[in-house]
Design a binder for these strands. Structure first.
Length: 469
RNA sequence: GGCGCGGUAGCCAAGUGGUAAGGCAGAGGUCUGCAAAACCUCCAACACCGGUUCAAAUCCGGUCCGCGCCUCCA
């Protein structure tokens, strides 16, 4: 089966064909660093991580660029409120962002260009747009893109501006524009911006938001590249405007495949900063959930389906993950045992591998991929129960799990599982009591361990000590 | 108002023409000193109404409900 994606541009499932065989240029819209990102934001980044890991799993080389928006209204206002420089203000949230994605096991991008480091590139694009006759400077000194002069505007989203909701907000600066639909390329300096300003051929000011992605994607991936991702809420106007700017400036196709991720919901509504119904990663970690559990929840639904966040889902994740951990641990314990069941294990591995791959290739059907994983776990558990899987076969099974985990990144526990000495000593004492048939004492110790958050599972090879969930 | 997405068992979630994956939870069983874990079995679902078809969760039309974008937003 061929790798297929739903392309927002064509609104169809399409086979993925990269510009250069075996290589993928990937641009993903990154955070505006004015606050801690919330887990709705991370849903998008985890979708993009799944996409990237799938491409790597399938043998592609991936060049991944993610921008950091470090200048806009919110960062400027935030810096002023905090009484520090824009750079100091945004640095704090850049650092937090990198901590957060590490906790969620998101592979880092190759480059994280910041908007403030690419002002020259942006100015160059605006100059090109003037040359092509689609940019103009208005009475308010800001520079706008003229949609009337660019007929192919609206490729991504059908926007009929005559049908816009009546009573929709009209921003005061729109009176300067030739058309309400025109968007800012360069915003003229406003005293409210404080010391945040750059010189340009059109006077002091700062870049419009959409410009940075056009500039930085072109800088690192070229004027035409393979995949651009983001949240569905960025389709309009952000991505639509990027397409217009980039294609007008460069005279060529901007992006071949647009992939958009649906929202994370809370109580039936989109999680967003403006609604205030959001959780940051830190909020949830503080409640005792792990990065891995959060990753599992955010990964668990198809990316084009809205996903409802709940703590129940996190609890379910914990149970499912522990089942996976236990199976993996059992396999590891059997690696050094005499070989058994290679043939049956190979059958299970082949079946699981191909179902897993087929799921991912089908527009990142994570549910199908996870079903393949769980089917495999059940097969392997059964074989182990029947003493039909050990030695080299266990190694083979573990290898498959490791391969799958290059995509999923959920099969290794967060905390190291080192069991404290005192707990181990109690476990040994209990085992001695069991040997001596002093079951009352053994059960008493088990209760003690339970009270301290540890669970004992007796196996033919001796007790297994695990953290209680 | 325009554009778009969705409504599948107690909860989450796949499946786009041939009779419903997977996870969590629940019940019974096997195993166990007892448990736990694991396995086996079971439970239980296609919003509603029409239509097309030998056959519809799946296609078409309509209804109801939920959500998103149209304004910064992943």
């Amino acid at each position: 089966m061929a790798l297929t994606f739903y392309n927002s541009l064509t609104r169809r499932l399409q086979e993925f064909v990269p510009i250069t065989p075996g290589q993928v240029g990937l641009y993903t819209c990154g955070p505006t660093v004015y606050n801690f990102a919330h887990i709705g934001n991370f849903r998008a980044y985890i979708f993009e991580d799944l996409l990237k890991r799938t491409l790597l799993y399938l043998g592609f080389e991936v060049k991944h660029i993610m921008n950091l928006t470090d200048v806009d209204d919110k960062t400027i206002r935030g810096a002023q409120a905090a009484g520090c420089s824009l750079n100091d203000f945004t640095q704090k949230y850049k650092d937090a962002f990198f901590q957060d994605i590490a906790a969620l096991r998101i592979l880092p991008a190759d480059v994280y260009p910041a908007a403030t480091e690419h002002i020259d590139d942006m100015i160059a694009i605006v100059e090109k747009l003037f040359d092509k006759g689609v940019a103009y400077q208005a009475d308010d000194h800001s520079v706008y893109f003229s949609i009337a002069k660019w007929p192919s505007y609206g490729q991504l989203v059908n926007i009929d501006h005559s049908q816009m909701r009546s009573g929709a907000r009209v921003k005061h600066d729109e009176y300067a524009k030739e058309s309400v639909a025109d968007f800012a390329l360069w915003k003229a300096y406003d005293p409210e911006d404080g010391d945040v300003a750059w010189d340009s051929p059109w006077g002091k000011g700062r870049p419009g938001w959409h410009l940075e992605c056009s500039a930085m994607s072109c800088r690192y991936l070229g004027p035409t590249f393979d995949i651009h991702c983001g949240g569905i809420d960025n389709m309009f106007p952000h991505h639509e405007d990027e397409i217009a700017q980039s294609e007008a400036a460069n005279g060529c196709r901007f992006v071949n495949y647009w992939l958009h991720c649906a929202h994370l919901m809370v109580d039936g509504q989109k999680m967003s900063k403006s609604l205030g119904n959001f959780f940051t990663l830190r909020d949830i970690l503080a409640k005792g959930y792990t990065g891995r559990e959060i990753r599992w929840v955010l990964l668990g639904a198809h990316y084009r389906q809205s996903l409802n966040f709940s703590f129940k889902a996190l609890d379910d994740a914990r149970a499912a993950l522990q089942r996976l951990d236990t199976a993996k641990q059992r396999l590891a314990e059997l690696v050094s045992a005499p070989d058994a069941g290679m043939e049956e294990t190979e059958t299970a591995v082949t079946t699981a591998e191909s179902a897993f791959r087929a799921g991912l290739e089908d527009d990142l059907n994570i549910s199908a991929a996870l079903a393949a994983l769980f089917d495999f776990i059940r097969d392997v558990n059964r074989l182990m129960d029947e003493k039909k899987l050990a030695g080299a076969a266990a190694t083979k099974a573990l290898n498959l799990l490791e391969q799958m985990d290059t995509v999923l990144a959920v099969l290794t526990p967060d905390e190291d599982d080192a069991v404290p000495e005192a707990i181990l000593a109690l476990a040994e004492e209990r085992q001695a009591a069991r040997k001596a048939k002093d079951f009352a004492r053994a059960d008493q110790i088990r209760n003690e361990l339970d009270a301290q958050g540890w669970v004992i599972e007796d196996t033919p090879k001796g007790p297994r000590v695990k953290k209680k969930i």
